[in-house]
Design a protein around this nucleic acid. Structure first.
Lengths: 183, 183
DNA sequence: GGACCCATGTAAATAGTTACATGATTGC
DNA sequence: GCAATCATGTAACTATTTACATGGGTCC
């Protein structure tokens, strides 16, 4: 499970509550893994049982109390050993490609509408990426080396969406060209 | 669930057995959704219960009998209505990016080793994509239009891996450059 | 004789989503 | 007065993976 290790990784940088972690997993810049609050709270309980993390309850006024989670030595060792394990290529799950594969059943306009809607979504995502709080996020890096690594991750995110955008643009153009020839 | 719709999509093109579908989902060219045999057989049973598909048992000699699944009218309607629904951007789950984010805990050589191993995997994947049975696959298209759509999907697959490869190359280079400055 | 292909599946575990619940505080 | 933020969680469901089981046929 990568969620476990992602949580251990965040806690290694600083102690956090479940709520903090949830915000992290939902911020644009940490966009390599997503998780719902349900999943995070459950996983934190599991990690606590396995002695990978421990928590202190922070009394707060006005806002609810919170559990601040810390990494244990065991957790840190588990994290490092996972970081060292080489990864297989992940299996791809791309719903849009499934739709396109079988969309010969649809009319031209319908196909174009699907592609354009998707393109709009990607453009928005790219925008929130580029005009988001990248610099702020990078400023939390503890060293030039860490900063470099985080930048590398950001570049992958942006690059991926740019690739998708380019592919969509070209595909739509070609599709429209084909349409014209036909008529 | 997209697996259900992907199966309906395949069955719309031609009747298939669970085993045939399993091979499809694991072939390089149909690389936009993966599924294990377990999942496929269970989903087929569910689809049969929902009257989206029906099957005939084909008696065979030498090899075991098989169930040949066909799409029903209901299944076809469900497929078309799903094809028309616009999709949200999928949530990303990229383990390598998780590792990189936290790999400030590792030594330089370890980081490079992880990146290079991953790069090797991608190169292999790209190779099997490019020298695979693309043309054969495309020849099953029933029309120029369907062929175009399938090509579009293939281009996305290849383009994605090429992007990842480029990103890895640049990252490794830059990382090594940084190493030199430090020493 | 061992590995792999054909063809089906069950059992069990893990991972992830959706909906719901609580309750005070802050801002429009 | 209503929505959003902070903060925690449960229940139920859906999706996915891993391991196991069966049994004949073919290929080296």
């Amino acid at each position: 499970m990568s969620l476990k290790h992602a949580i251990l990784g965040f806690l290694n940088i600083s102690p956090l509550s479940g709520y903090d972690l949830w915000k992290m997993f939902n911020s644009t810049v940490n966009n390599y893994w997503t998780a719902t609050n349900t999943q995070i709270y459950r996983t934190l309980s599991e990690l606590a049982e396995e002695n990978m993390v421990w928590y202190e309850v922070i009394q707060q006024e006005g806002v609810p109390n919170k559990k601040l989670y810390h990494l244990t030595q065991e957790g840190k060792e588990e994290l490092i050993s996972w970081l060292r394990t080489p990864l297989e290529l992940p299996s791809i799950r791309h719903k849009l490609l499934v739709q396109i594969s079988f969309s010969n059943l649809l009319e031209d306009e319908e196909i174009i509408a699907i592609l354009e809607t998707y393109m709009k979504n990607i453009k928005e995502k790219l925008n929130s990426y580029k005009h988001g709080n990248q610099e702020e996020y990078l400023s939390f890096a503890s060293s030039e080396r860490e900063r470099f690594l985080w930048k590398m991750v950001l570049k992958n995110g942006i690059g991926f969406y740019e690739f998708e955008l380019k592919w969509l643009k070209e595909s739509i153009e070609e599709f429209k060209k084909m349409e014209k020839i036909k008529t």
